[in-house]
Design a protein around this nucleic acid. Structure first.
Length: 261
DNA sequence: TTTACTGTTAGGAC
DNA sequence: TGTCCTAACAGTAA
């Protein structure tokens, strides 16, 4: 379930279990339609160790010292886990890094929208992609400049990785729910104060989810994440949660307390 | 059997 | 040129 907090949780798992171990080799699962490093690229990692990780938005990087990085993108349904050699494997493992001593770093991706690739330079990669600032790092001025001046729907602006990297469908809905903004509201029609409030909500929500290691059951009951169903009672007013499509994405919101269109 | 899906991006409209 | 929007991607699960 990968947006920024899920990716951060994945990065931390990699930090905890996949660094400073010598890479022995790789295993590939059923990988039709999955982009993975080529045999030559994989060979460059064998015998080396990962020593650092980095995350920008939803993009995860695992780096060897002075060498290339392994970039992992989780797509719509991907995840990573570190397991002992011989542990029972979940289905849909597409790619495995084998370390001396037994640990395995697995990339699982049922839906095959994710990818793993070799990246020489992280900063260059981010620049080439045109990714905006990370959603946890961006300052209030930059947020207001990029998000607040967009002509289209505020939710579409939040989802644009070129404006702001890391926010996806679920946490965009959550932030708009908390701040009482209709997902279809025109971003450039919102009051400046409202845009700042939205920035704080995005930041606070992402931080809180990161703090739970992206375990949704640990999040407060009154968050929208637990009520994403047409007709559910709103937890902030007497309204009912309603489903509509904004920018091609399914959106849940409460028409009674979310306004701005 | 049908439908929806948490991300990204090419291509088209304006 | 830029900005915005839609559809499509592949496979699973409800």
């Amino acid at each position: 379930m990968p947006e920024l907090p899920e990716c951060e949780a994945a990065r931390r798992r990699i930090d905890a279990g996949a660094l400073h171990r010598t890479i022995e080799g790789f295993d590939l699962g059923e990988v039709s339609h999955v982009e993975l490093p080529s045999e030559d690229e994989r060979a460059r990692f064998v015998g080396t160790q990962f020593s650092r990780t980095h995350r920008h938005g939803k993009y995860i990087f695992v780096g060897s010292k002075d060498g290339p990085w392994l970039h992992i993108h989780l797509g719509m349904a991907g995840s990573v886990r570190v397991l002992e050699e011989g542990a029972e494997l979940p289905d849909f493992i597409r790619f495995t890094v084998k370390f001396e001593g037994g640990n395995r770093l697995h990339f699982r991706d049922p839906r095959k929208f994710g990818l793993v690739r070799l990246v020489e330079d992280v900063d260059e990669f981010i620049a080439d992609k045109g990714l905006g600032p990370d959603a946890l790092e961006i300052g209030d001025n930059a947020f207001s400049e990029t998000i607040g001046k967009t002509k289209g729907a505020i939710k579409s602006a939040l989802l644009s990785q070129k404006k702001l990297a890391g926010v996806g469908n679920l946490w965009a809905d959550e932030a708009l729910y908390r701040t009482g903004i209709d997902p279809e509201a025109k971003a450039n029609k919102l009051e400046a104060g409202k845009v700042s409030e939205l920035h704080r909500a995005v930041r606070d929500i992402l931080r809180a989810v990161v703090d739970t290691d992206a375990t949704y059951s640990k999040l407060p009951d009154d968050w929208l994440i637990h009520h994403r169903e047409d007709g559910d009672a709103c937890t902030r007013c007497d309204g009912k949660i309603t489903k509509k499509t904004v920018g091609g994405r399914t959106s849940y919101y409460c028409p009674d307390h979310q306004s701005g269109t």
